[in-house]
Write a protein that binds this DNA or RNA. Structure first.
Lengths: 337, 337
DNA sequence: GCATATTATGCAAAGCATTGCGTAATTATT
DNA sequence: AATAATTACGCAATGCTTTGCATAATATGC
């Protein structure tokens, strides 16, 4: 029983003109007489006419909607990136349809199929953590829907990507620890199979080498992405009597656990051990001591991804050149270093 | 140049039948001969045909999309509620279009108008903090779009709402402090003009009265919703020599500041002063000490709001009975108490 | 063998906006 | 005054699907 909205036809009938006349008058076409035009515009305004986007979409074969697929909107990185996308897309008349994979590859597949079925004009995505193939994205592309990845990007070539320079970010973090006088720096990586763990490790290694510091594999620790695991990992290092005066962790969540473990053992931060994370989470300033981190320009990443989508609207699956944009990170210095 | 997707007509042409036959075959109508049906279904499957939702929407005067308008998806409360909505709406074939007001009333107005223009089938909203009228929501309703509010709800009658029992939540929090042996409990409220500040104050007052504890207006403090203000407020209380052994704050963010101030003054938490917040933010466990809080069932609130929308799909603006659903809060006991 | 019932399929309208082309009426041109 | 040019509109198709009604062909009943 959803009440019908005003249509062109309604206005046309009331004024005894054709719908084409109304349509043209409303876009201020010169073909319509001044008198008629004024009448039409006045009536349309007073009736609060809005063109039906579904009809328009049908006609133009466009939905003016882009699908955004993220692991979780609750992640600050994701919500900030989404805000960036909206900022750009709004201005171009696009709406955003947001889906969460909840880190599940299966959910991701379902969502991509739904987005394609919904006739979105493009998909901007960050991958779920659970592994799997990328067939669903290729399927979208085959159907003529351009796909742009950000943050967690796949390793196949045929898609545009917006990422940060993870290696450089890691170098910045470790350099910072070294500048603070630290010499034995541990790296708490993410899960062993994750690309990001490896890439940031390269940065860690390079920074140490550049300063002629030895690389001690005993100070490289893999663990899951959460504070409980960070806590465990740090306690273990202490229990095993490893000597270290700095910790670089793959993300801030892990650091929260690390800080808790250090506190428990009365290890002073940053004097005995300095700690730096990655991501610049909003809660970093709530931690004790407040956590230094590497900030990813999530908002800008979202903007950039949206811009790439806009440039790929006329997408030819058979023949297009993917773009990759790399953005810079920034050191945020707080009490933990 | 967006590549056209397969349509009914394409299939019809290939098989030399009419589109109606294809349409009916695809929904397994008994009117279609077994042989024809099989052919059609097979071809449609192999071509991966998906009905165009825009055409369907045009026909049914439905977009199968609901608009969700929140202050910020970055707020845990909001993202959790959205997940709840998606969980319910997905099952009913609805997509979700998410907008952020960024706490701005003007943005909110723009988004609501856009959602109506996009022909969403309903709007689920939580109000921006910046004050203003509700004309835009009434406008949506007048256009036949049902509106359901959650969390931050307006004080006008003609809309359905999903909220928590804030007074009861406050009582639970203060009772908990009292049970922990605290007697002089301060209440750090939000901004003075906010309904929520007042409602939770009522709970605070009731809890104290129920335990025959005196109410000291000096222990009621208004401040903005952030940790810096919480920090300032707490420092001021200390500087002014106010005596207190418990703090109930209107939200966890404020508490983060309070904990920092107490730490700075070497006031032991929870022994000297116990602290409890409201919202059960994900970072509560990262705080030092980890923060007790009142948990709002955000996911369930989202589910409930979605369900109310579903029940109001056949919405008659002139004649409907708004529903209000009140959900329960839960005490989360951590180290700070 | 003929009338009726049944089955399988097609036609066309509806839902809404846009736009190329056609037409009528008016004005300008020579 | 007659032709050309302009102005101001309308017609109809397009995009895609669904669905009531019509039609053709076959099967059933007597």
């Amino acid at each position: 029983m959803k009440s019908r909205q005003i249509t062109l036809k309604d206005i046309a009938k009331m004024l005894n003109v054709s719908t084409s006349t109304v349509s043209r008058a409303l876009k201020d076409s010169h073909e319509i007489g001044a008198e008629t035009k004024k009448q039409i515009i006045d009536l349309a305004t007073s009736l609060d006419y809005i063109p039906n986007p579904l009809a328009l979409g049908l006609l133009k074969n466009r939905s003016f909607t882009v699908g955004v697929l993220v692991p979780k909107i609750g992640y600050h990185y994701n919500s900030a990136a989404i805000s960036g996308m909206e900022e750009v897309l709004d201005r171009h008349g696009y709406s955003v349809m947001i889906c969460q994979s909840n880190e599940s590859h299966d959910q991701e597949v379902v969502h991509v199929k739904n987005l394609v079925a919904s006739r979105v004009d493009g998909i901007i995505a960050s991958l779920a953590q659970s592994a799997g193939d990328y067939d669903h994205f290729m399927y979208a592309q085959k159907k003529g829907v351009p796909v742009v990845f950000f943050d967690r990007v796949p390793d196949y070539e045929k898609a545009s990507k917006v990422i940060i320079d993870n290696e450089k970010g890691a170098i910045t973090a470790v350099n910072h620890l070294i500048e603070r006088g630290k010499k034995r720096i541990a790296y708490i990586a993410g899960p062993k199979n994750l690309r990001i763990s490896a890439i940031r490790y390269r940065g860690y290694e390079k920074a140490l080498k550049n300063h002629n510091l030895p690389i001690d594999k005993k100070l490289l620790i893999y663990c899951e992405f959460n504070q409980e695991m960070g806590y465990q990992a740090c306690k273990k290092m202490i229990a095993e009597g490893k000597s270290f005066d700095g910790i670089f962790a793959v993300n801030d969540r892990t650091c929260a656990g690390v800080l808790a473990a250090l506190r428990e053992h009365n290890i002073a931060v940053p004097d005995d051990v300095a700690v730096i994370g990655f991501n610049d989470e909003p809660y970093d300033i709530f931690l004790y001591p407040s956590l230094s981190s590497i900030k990813q320009p999530a908002f800008e990443i979202g903007q950039e991804a949206a811009r790439i989508f806009l440039s790929e609207r006329d997408f030819d699956p058979e023949n297009f050149t993917p773009q990759t944009k790399i953005l810079e990170t920034e050191l945020i210095w707080r009490a933990s270093t």
